[in-house]
Amino acid sequence: MPIIINLDKMLQKRNMKSAELAALVGITTANLSILKTGKAKAIRFSTLESICEVLNCQPGDILEYVQKDSKL
């Protein structure tokens, strides 16, 4: 999928664990895992808002668009 989720990087930067983030945001660790692994089909604005609030970041810090044919 051309949308990359950079949650791992942000968690590392903030020195936070997944379970802690899930608890603060109010989602299950299973759902957070789905989000981190890129299996999620969509993300609610309310979830995005909570994540940004907890991690003190912008949506762009978490979501990144990468063109399909671009080489990373």
């Binding site: 989602i27 759902n31 789905i34 989000l35 299996k39 999620a40 089909k41 993300i43 609610r44």
Partner: peptide
């Protein structure tokens, strides 16, 4: 429903 389940 599958899409809904995968909406976080």
């Amino acid at each position: 429903e599958s899409e809904n389940n995968l909406t976080i």
